[in-house]
Simulated assay, not measured.
Amino acid sequence: MKQIPTAWNSERLFISDLKESEIFDIQSIVDTSNYVQEWDGRDHEPDYVRSCFEKGNLPPGGKLANYRIQTIRTIQENKNIGVLSLYHGYPMENSVYLEFLYIHSETQKQGYGQEMMHALTQLFFDLGYKEIRINVALKNWAALRFWTKSGFDQISGIYGDLEHSDKTFANMELIKTLKKHDI
């Protein structure tokens, strides 16, 4: 299966493979997403970006060659505003798993996320993929709204704790089927 290019763009954004020199800047952007930890129960990972750059964030049995981490920057200001981390071919060969997509909290609500998803959907469809998957914390209502608005309208499963409380967590895996008329 083909993979996304090392560099590509949408109308206002330029997306390219993370360079080692960008790790600190991108980690500082990822750190602005720490509020999500109260919804997903994960611990802060101060070396998340470096770890992804060096080893990837792979699914069970995954290969580094199928993993990609890319920066998202504005074309006009040439400023890093986000990060995209994904895996080609999981859980099936014609699937793409979005491991992490995040736009800096200071630049959210400007349409960049929807622009990214529209461009990614087109790109993945053109490459022959049939679906995109993502895992979302059930307590992350803003993300659930974003992903359903982006066309993720199928639930493949709910995973995690069985009961709701302040100290329990669960995630839902969402799927967007790629069809010609959606592009």
Rank of each mutant, 00 (worst) to 15 (best):
T32D: 11
F53T: 03
A65F: 07
R73F: 06
R73N: 12
T71P: 05
P46Y: 09
E22A: 08
G62E: 04
I103V: 13
Q37Y: 12
D47N: 14
I23A: 08
G113Q: 07
F53L: 02
N78C: 04
R68A: 12
G41F: 03
S85F: 00
C52G: 15
R73A: 13
I29C: 03
T32N: 11
N94G: 01
L86N: 01
I23Q: 09
N78S: 09
L64Y: 14
Q37A: 11
S51V: 05
G113S: 13
N94K: 05
Y48F: 14
I81L: 03
Q37G: 14
V36Y: 11
G61W: 06
G89K: 00
P91S: 01
P59A: 02
Y35A: 08
Y90Q: 00
Y67S: 14
V36W: 06
L18I: 14
E99D: 12
V49Y: 08
I75F: 08
I69R: 00
D31T: 07
I26W: 02
E54Q: 14
A65W: 03
Y67E: 08
D47V: 04
G111L: 11
C52N: 13
N80D: 04
E99G: 01
S28Y: 06
S105I: 02
Q37D: 10
K109A: 13
I81Q: 07
V83W: 00
M92I: 09
S85W: 00
N34Y: 10
G113M: 05
Y97I: 00
K79M: 11
V36F: 11
I26H: 01
F24L: 13
K55G: 09
E106N: 14
I69C: 07
T74Q: 12
T71I: 12
E99R: 02
S51Y: 09
S105P: 00
I29W: 04
I75K: 15
M117C: 08
G61S: 10
M116A: 12
R68I: 00
E45N: 14
Q108M: 06
T32I: 08
S28C: 10
N34F: 08
Y87D: 03
I103D: 00
K63I: 06
R50P: 05
E115D: 07
G111W: 11
Q108K: 13
A65Q: 15
D25G: 08
G41Y: 06
S33G: 02
F24S: 15
I23G: 10
W39S: 12
I75M: 12
M92W: 11
V36K: 07
E106C: 07
E99H: 03
G61I: 07
M116N: 09
L86I: 03
M92A: 13
I29K: 06
K109H: 15
V30Y: 15
F24C: 10
L84T: 01
L86Y: 09
D47Q: 12
I69Q: 07
G61N: 14
D25N: 12
L18N: 05
N34S: 15
E54S: 13
E115N: 08
G61Y: 06
I103E: 00
S51A: 09
T107Y: 10
T74F: 04
